[in-house]
């Protein structure tokens, strides 16, 4: 399977990655060569093989419903790019 530059732009938009035209072109070539590698998978017959998400196939443990966290807003917001009145600020979102 081969990518087009529109595919790259679409993926970049979904991933919120700003790419210049030059980067898009360079990325296209590289992604196609990576996909060439990836497509070697298709030689393997995987009919009836269940996908494996975790190697050890363990089961999830659940935690008890208890409040264990306390307020650390000041510490966390000290490293925020922009915060005011306890809120994280971003450019106005129009709904």
């Amino acid at each position: 399977m081969s990518l087009t530059s529109d595919d790259v732009k679409r993926a970049a938009k979904l991933a919120r990655l700003g790419l210049t035209e030059a980067e898009t072109t360079e990325t296209l070539t590289q992604l196609n060569s990576i996909l060439g590698l990836v497509d070697q998978m298709q030689q393997i017959d995987t009919n009836g093989v269940a996908p494996l998400a975790h190697p050890l196939e363990l089961k999830q443990t659940l935690r008890a419903d208890a409040v264990t966290e306390n307020n650390q807003r000041d510490k966390f917001q000290a490293i925020a790019p922009q915060a005011e009145a306890g809120l994280y600020l971003v450019p106005r979102v129009v709904e």
């Binding site: 966290e69 807003r73 966390f76």
Partner: peptide, 26 residues
């Protein structure tokens, strides 16, 4: 529930902004 689905932060309604947002919630 008392705490959040994936963290131990309180789910209590009406607290000051981001005072119930832990490392995990952030």
């Amino acid at each position: 529930t008392e705490s959040k689905i994936f963290s131990g932060s309180s789910t209590h309604f009406g607290a000051e902004p981001n005072t119930q947002a832990s490392l995990i919630d952030l």
